[in-house]
């Protein structure tokens, strides 16, 4: 998981139709399936592992959380409940550092 503190969950339910969107202000560089992100406005850096990077990439503003979970289930050998928990935690962390926004969620 990304090495940052977990903020308050913004995704209260795995069944919600929230469609989180990537924040494009960050500079990102991929390395061996992971990625480094740098926000020039705040001089914040963070690293996403392979799973977190996939989730971030799926946050295109039109894919629902439910479909992100489904993508993880199909991509990895994990149960739906495991994928749900990972997605929820990762989205919370991505939101807390500002890598995604949930504006327009439940649209």
């Amino acid at each position: 998981m990304i090495p940052i503190d977990t903020g308050n969950s913004v995704i209260e339910s795995e069944d919600c139709d929230a469609r989180p969107a990537r924040c494009e202000d960050w500079i990102s560089r991929e390395l061996d399936g992971e990625a480094i992100f740098y926000d020039i406005a705040t001089d914040t850096t963070c690293r996403l592992n392979e799973t977190a990077l996939l989730i971030w990439q799926l946050c295109d503003g039109s894919t629902s959380v439910r479909n992100i979970v489904a993508s993880l289930v199909s991509e990895y050998d994990v149960s739906k409940s495991e994928a749900r928990a990972d997605v929820r935690e990762t989205l919370s962390q991505l939101h807390s550092v500002g890598l995604i926004s949930t504006d327009g969620a439940n649209a």
Binding site: P3, R29, L31, E34, A35, I36, N49
Partner: peptide
């Protein structure tokens, strides 16, 4: 991982804010 390496190098850098 190399990405972890980059993150740790940033933390140990003296001049990161010059280069950003």
């Amino acid at each position: 991982s190399r990405a972890d390496g980059v993150l740790r190098l940033v933390r140990e850098s003296f001049t990161f804010l010059k280069f950003r």
